[in-house]
């Protein structure tokens, strides 16, 4: 094949998106030769330009107080907030997770029937709304019960509160299912502690070091037959050079 022919054949191999004039079904022929990463699949590092959802300082401190009892600093590693879990959840709540973009939020909504069908509560408010409402209620509860801001309560008082919340014994008002709010915060705190550091939490891969997970490695062919061995693999994250 001569050079001219090669160029011609490369040209015919290129994919084409045909926009039919005035009509909009997107036709694809051939394989797109574009090898640049698709924008919506590129890793999106957590923002570092300040808080976007947890902008209220009291609310943020209250959430840190909860997260740091769910995951305290101890011999197993740093606390949730030390590991970046507040930055993590703020970033999550500012995006599609926070807005509930994936959720079915249409009515009609019959909370009691949905709870009965699904074995647990469902919501038509987004996670962002649930956090903001929940954190306000937390502060109100602390003011009413202890005449103090929630984050100033002692560790043992917060532990007692969380234990009761987990058991569904805390009343945060009619609008809030306190047991479900506990589950939401527990889920997110531990996500932040264990997700790749690119999402803002798990600083220095502390969560991974706690359990011995080697992170974003992609090839264990050399290790699979070293059975029952402590491999002592140093963890790696998606952050270049981390």
């Amino acid at each position: 094949m001569n050079r001219r022919k090669a160029i011609f054949s490369l040209g015919t191999l290129a994919a084409s998106w045909v926009a039919v004039p005035g009509l909009l079904a997107k036709e694809l022929h051939k394989v797109p030769s574009e090898t640049r990463m698709n924008e919506d699949h590129l890793p999106k590092p957590a923002g570092r330009q300040g808080y976007r959802v947890l902008t209220d300082e009291i609310a943020r401190k209250n959430l840190a107080a909860v997260f740091d009892r769910l995951i305290p600093a101890d011999e197993w590693g740093p606390s949730a907030s030390e590991a970046g879990c507040i930055e993590f959840i703020d970033n999550e709540l500012a995006g599609d997770y926070g807005s509930g973009a994936a959720l079915y939020l249409s009515g009609p909504f019959d909370p009691d029937n949905e709870k009965k069908m699904m074995g647990g509560p469902q919501f038509i408010s987004s996670p962002r709304e649930r956090y903001l409402t929940g954190l306000k209620a937390l502060e109100t509860w602390a003011r009413n019960t202890w005449n103090s801001s929630f984050h100033t309560l002692s560790d043992s008082r917060i532990d007692e509160f969380l234990t009761n919340m987990e058991a569904g014994k805390i009343d945060l008002g009619k609008e809030i299912d306190s047991r479900a709010l506990f589950e939401l915060m527990l889920q997110n705190a531990r996500e932040g502690y264990l997700a790749d550091p690119i999402h803002g939490g798990n600083k220095n891969m502390a969560g991974w070091k706690m359990i011995g997970f080697p992170g974003a490695r992609y090839d264990y062919r050399l290790y699979i037959e070293r059975r029952n061995e402590n491999l002592n693999l140093v963890p790696v994250s998606l952050i270049p050079g981390d």
Partner: peptide, 27 residues
Amino acid sequence: TSTDFPPAVDTDELRWHTRRQLLQPMS
């Protein structure tokens, strides 16, 4: 493969397993 889930994108549990970004959303 190369544009949407190469190795440096695929190894992200939060995004793909927890948030299920390759799956059809309920919305």
